[in-house]
Amino acid sequence: MLVVTVTPTYTGCPATAVINLDIETKLRSNGIENLRLEQRISPAWTTAWLSQEGREKLRKYGIAPPVEGTSKTGRISRLSSNEALVVACPRCGSDKTEKVSQFGSTPCKAAYRCRSCLEPFDYFKCH
């Protein structure tokens, strides 16, 4: 029996059911019938788990991948620490970008804007 462990990015992630269904459908369509999905929250998901390929796919889709090493290790870090973060525009590559909102359309993203090509884009937050 194939056991697939699935870890949600956030406790409130509403996509987990759909993601599970997609995983199962894909495996079954590849002839794997004897399988079980296991939801596990520990160890907690982190953006460090993103593969290089995954990061590249995000960028191509228009989402800037997380800048590693910028996740918070606790206590209040305030605005200032975030302001120093350089996020490259996924469209033109410019690093002249600014944060519009700490949260984007989903919990895992923040909203940014490129000051060079003006593109609004999402940044996948490091956590």
Partner: peptide, 21 residues
Amino acid sequence: VLEEDIALANIALDLIGQARL
């Protein structure tokens, strides 16, 4: 402000997620 609509929904969502666990 719109940013707060987003952030508050996000925080509520996290809290409901934690409550479920």
